[in-house]
Structure formats: C-alpha cells, structure tokens
Amino acid sequence: MSNDMNKTNDVMLDIKNLVVEFKTEDETVQAINGIDLKINKGKTHGLVGETGAGKTTTALSILNLVPFPAEKPTAGTIELDGVHLYKTNEKGECVPALTEKDYQSIRGEKVAMIFQDPMTALNPIFTVGDQIAESVRLHQNVDQAKAMERAREMLELVGIPAKRADDYPHQFSGGMKQRVVIAMALACNPSLLIADEPTTALDVTIQAQVLEMMRGLRDKFGTSVLMITHDLGIIAEMCDEVSVMYAGRIVEYGNLEDIFDNTRHPYTQGLFNSLPNIEDRKAELKPIRGLMPNPADLPKGCAFCPRCDYAMEICKTVRPERKWLSETHCVECHLYDDGKDVSKL
C-alpha cells in the first residue's frame, strides 16, 4: 500500500482509457478512442499528431472544457495529482467528479493552458498587466496592487520590461503576445502546463526564443508540461516522453530514443519519412499515401490500415492491442503480435 502511495505521488497527470465522442443528429464523431497517458512530476510529455488526431480534445478533457455537443468525456478517468477529475456513475457513464467551482479553481491554478494563437487568446480591451493580474486575483487572496506587482514580475520573467504592463495587446508583436500568454499561464505557479502548439503561429527565430524561455521556466519551477505539437523537431528539443496520436488513439509511446531511434509504428515512420531531411536535400520524400480517416466512420480494425504499407489481413478487422516492446516503449500494431519479428521496420 505504501509503495502504491509513493507511486501516485510521482504522477502529475494520469489519464486512463479516455473516450470522447461527439454525437450529432446523423453521426457520431469518435474524437478520442481510449487513450492512456501519464505524466510524472517535472516531466515534459509530447503529444504529436496531425490535424484531427484528437490532441486538443485530450487537453480540453483535462480542463473539463470539452465543447458541445459532447461537453464531457464518454468514458475513462483522469487523475490530476491524485485528485479524480471524472468518475463513473451507476450507469457506467463518465461524469465530472468535481463541482464547476472546483474546476474553476483548478483551471489557471493547478493546470494552465497556452493556446496556439496568441492573437486571439488575449482580450484587446484590457492592458496585459490587468489580464495577468486577473488570474492572480482569481486564485490568490491578494489585492489589485499586489496582483499587478506579480503581473510585472511575470512580464520580466518572460523577458518583457515591467513598464509595458500598461500596454494593450495590439501594441505587442506576435512573439511578445505569446510571451504574455505564457506569463499569464505561469502567474499562479501551475503544477501542469498544457501548451497547445505554443509556437506554431510564430516565426522560427522567435520560436527559438520562446522555446528557450519555456525550457528555462519549466526547469526553474519544476512544472510538468503536456506539449502538443505537430512538429517532431520541437518534440526532440523539449520533451522527455512522446505519444504519437492517430485517429484518437495513441499508436506509439516511448522516450525520445524509443521514438526517434527505434521507431516501430508504421505511422510514426511515415511522419519521419514525410519530413524533408535538412542534412540531405536530395533525399526523396516518402509521403504517407491517402488521407486521415473520417472520425465519424473509422475503419473497423486498425485506423491506419488503409494507408499502411505493411497492412495485413488481420489489420482490416481487428483493432491492435497495446504491446509493450520494452519497459518504456509501447506500440499498437499487429506487426508486433506475439511471435512476430519485432525489428520489422
């Protein structure tokens, strides 16, 4: 028992068998189809995948902000630092385990999120100082003057002069707006930071500055990070562990060496082969053929089967189970079923 206790204390986020479905009048969109994801304290977990893979929906589930028409996960549990965010009721449905007020106190204080587009994440009619101070006042019992002081401190921390706290968002460039958003997210010292494509809207030299700064702050405060991105380059730079997501499933999970040097899933391999190799400009691109499946009409077996060069008969009908290849590396692919050659790719 005591061993178990210690174990949970290391875990910041524990998602088990999360399912999110959006039911509309004529179809059910299966956004997330049973994922497990665990982030230990102080670690950065990369979630990589293409448009529509379910990355952002995963993040919104943690904050209990799943949009209409689902509004909550269909099944599964999420534990944040030992606290259950969802529970299963008598009918077997997944329901929020906390009151809306509790979620509000979690959002911003325990879990903060950085959104992709800093241009729309800030309110144009308040100064950036006010906006940072607002989240401080919501979560900490301080007066406006104290909160503003904290806001200025945070701005300095992200490399913006404190005197600019009185400026409005339109007076900042894109890179600086994203820094403001990061300052706001970190103002209450969250234990978990969700960064949803934090640098996608930024130029590459500015991206380098922002990533460097995020790395510094993460290490300074020991924040756990869920880094959502489509860019494997950013994963390589920022993360300890990686989950590769495809059509609402985590198809491969491992540490950096597992994913980058011992790639096992054909989809992960396809992602790498699609990227132009900066060290070898003559190398031909090998795109993944075909398109993402319609999430309202997923293939019966493995969702990647129609695009996979290694697909076998079984892949069409049976969804592959998770298979652990080592203590740190797992994959959902029939190529690695028992008795099969595990070094296939």
Binding site: S173, M176, V204, Q207, A208, L211, E212, D231, A236, D261
Partner: peptide, 25 residues
C-alpha cells in the same frame, strides 16, 4: 546563420549550436 540555427531538427542526436537573436524585427 541565426535563421538556419533556429530550425528545430527532428533528430535527438543533432548537436546544433543555436544562435539566439535578441530583440524583434
């Protein structure tokens, strides 16, 4: 030089020296 060094490379063994630019455009 700075622009090229800022590209995140999808390779965990790449030991690239990064030139961080100060300031903004």
């Amino acid at each position: 030089k700075a622009l090229l060094s800022a590209i995140p490379v999808p390779n965990i063994h790449s030991k690239k020296e990064r030139i961080l630019l100060k300031g903004e455009v």
